[in-house]
Design a protein around this nucleic acid. Structure first.
Lengths: 141, 141
DNA sequence: CAATAAAAGCAACAATGTTGCATTATATTT
DNA sequence: AAATATAATGCAACATTGTTGCTTTTATTG
């Protein structure tokens, strides 16, 4: 399969010029099923690219709706591919995230939809983020 | 009201020696209804205390179950008081968190219980974190 | 292929988080 | 209440992470 072409097309579809760093970093996300922390990406792509480029590329991808960031409680933001055809400046992922406490991987559980939350009177909802911690399917004994 | 005494007692109840920095930082949490970012605390208490002390005090409070950390998607961990009588090394807060996109405050909605999440086969749940973004009751127009 | 626009690289800096150790404060014991 | 043991603080130095301005390089367009 000609994945390389797919990557170029993803970039073009998002009105991004095709550069080596963008191809490489997007490739990382496609190859890796789980989420990637900035540090992971910097380690895997950082030999070839400047740290600043990694930061800016990730930011660009988030802005374009190619990846989304996943909240954590320990100051280590992670990113994963958007699968819900997010558009520029408007993410609408509806899946939950799962963090394995054993292998520390983060997964997007695309089939698990975020639940409705009934808020107290006066609060309005724009976006709901659900992160479940537990043992993933690869680590269960 | 003699709040000072309460603070000392909270510390003692958690087998912590009563020190000026712990009193001050715990006071901040009690006075402030929402969550506090590390930066907030450092700014409010940092004139009197060393940055390192703030880090260590927060870590101690988390370990003891006095405060809990709230995940965010932008690398700015926030902390809030535990109200569900968490014990040392074992948090069992069951409330959701609400981040106002207008005033940027984070609230613990103690009355809103985290929903059940049905995970795919093979995944087991240890902890569920729900963060809702929207407009809070103080900012609604 | 040249011109234009955009991205990458570089350097310097700012902010955030960590560690070891000497000093100081707290709690405990007598 | 003072001495002692224990624990927390402050300090310095360092490591990591994130940001900004500017120059050079690369990609796209005609």
């Amino acid at each position: 399969m000609n994945m390389e072409k797919d990557i170029k097309e993803i970039l073009k579809k998002n009105q991004l010029s095709v550069t080596a760093s963008r191809e490489k970093i997007l490739q990382l996300f496609i190859d890796h099923s789980g989420a990637l922390a900035h540090g992971d990406i910097e380690r895997k792509a950082g030999e070839k690219f400047d740290r600043v480029t990694v930061y800016r590329t990730l930011q660009t991808f988030v802005d374009k709706g190619i990846i989304h960031s996943i909240p954590t409680a320990d100051n280590s933001v992670r990113y994963a591919l958007c699968k819900d055809n997010c558009e520029q400046g408007h993410h609408h992922d509806q899946h939950i995230h799962f963090v394995c406490t054993n292998c520390n991987n983060t997964y997007c559980l695309d089939d698990v939809v975020t639940p409705q939350i009934r808020l107290p009177k006066g609060y309005s909802t724009e976006h709901i983020e659900v992160v479940v911690e537990g043992i993933c399917i690869n680590c269960k004994s």
